[in-house]
Design a protein around this nucleic acid. Structure first.
Lengths: 352, 352
DNA sequence: CTGAAAGCGCTTACAG
DNA sequence: CTGAAAGCGCTTACAG
């Protein structure tokens, strides 16, 4: 049953009484094949259940229509959406999409650039995250090397020193806009939960956060900024810890979560501490996950258009475009953000 | 910059002053290479930034260490977790994992079996979903064909007529156990939201649901079963519609959601209709998504061990095991399920 | 420990 | 419209 010897182009050619060149022609859908020949070859293909070998094709043809994509944790729906967008676009362009895990970055021997280089890909889209300086340097280096062999397009939180084409997320501008929105609702104590402490790039979120505060002439309060890893856990613990360390009269009236998952953690923290959203606390998320509208209350967030970003990036490698674009976003205002509450009584956190 | 001609094994061999056979030996880490030779070859490899071509390797070596995996919508965290588990296991076995979208099934020309066959994969794990009879037949047929060439391992909701090795989800048994749990809490009006209407297999969820009811000698009430597509939307709409079509005294006191996403939709429906969870309505989910503990109230659900399933399936193809295993599960009891409430007053649904 | 040679299964000019 | 032949870049016996 298994290990059945696979038919090759020679078997098909012999069966159809033609040369392998002719079989190759019909395989690739060339037009200059006599109808009767075509029919005979197709019949032989069917008979042998023949499928050309991708390896032989790639070797002989000098590559194959595949673009690679390097992505971090797919269990985060944000990345899954980037992938899905890329996949659909690749298919509609007649390309296959091959995924490589980002984690390989941490293992130098599994450097994604090396992995990608082994395949003669049409190009690669790499989703970059902030990294500690040393790893960042290594990644940049290997991407430059990879670029010698194929178009490389970047997406994600790309540090400014990366001189690559791609679709970039200007998180600083985004955060500034979120702060501005909350300020317009009257909030003056705005927390930021879940950002990565190691961020070193000017486009990072907390730079934008601080700029937003400055613009509104609000003080930057260290206690209002807590770091985390982007999980619901870090949102819950981060916010609980913040609340517990502060007298209730200093509690923030709004919190910006790194993403919707962190925002869910903040919802839990609010419940833990008896705060009602949005009456006592406004929560603003990011990513526009599918579950957002179904939370209680429905989550205000921002749609980052992940599907479009993935699709756009693929198109850029396919067309070998060399542009740097900024990702658009749209606010999705629902019920988790409201006007700032009046100054709070100084009641114990475990009160009523 | 781009299209730089890539170094081949010949370039490296020439540079190191050895034959390509020797280079091939060091590439594959064979031991019988003289230390000085080894050093020279490694130096040449580094100098040329050489990486062997996957295509040539696959062609010459008769295949390559890659296993394929066919999965539906990756944006559903359930599938993303299967993928992640498979990926980690593959890597630790020294294999690469290549993903193919399940959607190709709908396009006969993109039959996943054909796609997989083009690559000389070490094997394939295919995540099967229930399908309308005709498509189901087609899939079964092409999987059987594929199996002639490589080990094929199935995961997911595999209909019983699929005679393949794999890790199977016995949804009938699972649903029966959930019903039993709810019955033990005193519930007698138990709804099922979000199952696929086309399901035709004996292992399907609603078979187990009905068996559970029968076991508890509870009547099967058609109105308590609503179909859907597994999204939060279908959960919300399905449950709202059910409630609106019933006098409140007939409202279910517990609802089993197809998955956690649907459960979130049910949470929203409960809010829409002024029901408090779990006081008025218990909700039981499935999949144990990361956000479950952070919902209000924390969601009772079942952990399907998706990571293990993905990993196990990969191990089965790698070891060419030919067993059919049943997936285990664990109940994760949190706060969304409680004892059945006392009989409800007949108040209008939009009451207090 | 190392090399010469065949061969993996295709595509691609080049002839005809 | 079709075929003979070279070549893609490796691995794998087989000698030595």
């Amino acid at each position: 049953m298994k290990e059945h010897k696979r038919a090759t182009i020679y078997d098909v050619a012999a069966d159809a009484g033609v040369s392998i060149a002719t079989v190759s022609r019909v395989l690739r859908g060339e037009k200059n094949v006599a109808p009767i020949t075509l029919a005979r070859v197709e019949e032989a293909i069917r008979k042998h259940d023949y499928r050309p070998s991708d390896f032989a094709r790639g070797l002989a043809g000098g590559g194959v229509n595949t673009v690679g994509i390097v992505l971090p944790r797919l269990v985060n729906p944000y990345y899954a959406m980037l992938f899905t967008g890329a996949q659909e676009e690749a298919r509609s362009c007649g390309y296959a999409l091959s995924m490589f895990p980002w984690s390989s970055l941490r293992t130098p021997s599994l450097d994604p650039a090396l992995l990608l280089a082994e395949r003669r890909l049409a190009g690669a889209v790499v989703c970059v995250e902030y990294l500690p300086p040393e790893e960042n340097e290594r990644l940049l280096h290997s991407l430059r090397r990879l670029r010698r062999y194929m178009p490389v397009v970047l997406i994600g939180c790309v540090p400014t020193e990366y001189d690559f084409p791609g679709v970039f997320q200007n998180n600083a501008a985004l955060l500034k806009e979120i702060v501005r929105h909350l300020v317009s609702l009257g909030h003056e104590r705005i927390a930021l939960v879940g950002g990565l402490q190691e961020d070193t790039d000017p486009l990072r979120r907390d730079v934008g956060y601080m700029e937003g505060l400055r613009e509104a002439r609000l003080p930057f309060t260290e206690s209002y900024r807590v770091y985390g890893t982007g999980t619901p856990e870090c949102g819950r613990e981060g916010l609980c810890h913040m609340l517990d360390s502060l007298k209730p009269s200093f509690w923030p009236t709004a919190v910006i979560a790194l993403n919707d998952l962190v925002a869910m953690g903040c919802y839990a923290a609010a419940r833990d501490r008896g705060l009602s959203i949005p009456r006592d606390l406004s929560v603003f998320g990011c990513d526009n996950l599918v579950s957002g509208p179904y939370l209680g209350p429905a989550l205000s967030t921002v749609d980052l258009h992940q599907l479009s970003i993935g699709a756009r990036a693929v198109r850029m490698v396919v067309n070998a475009e060399d542009t740097r674009e900024e990702a658009r976003w749209d606010f999705v205002l629902r019920e988790s953000c409201a006007s700032a509450p009046p100054p709070r009584q100084d009641i114990p956190p475990d009160g009523p």
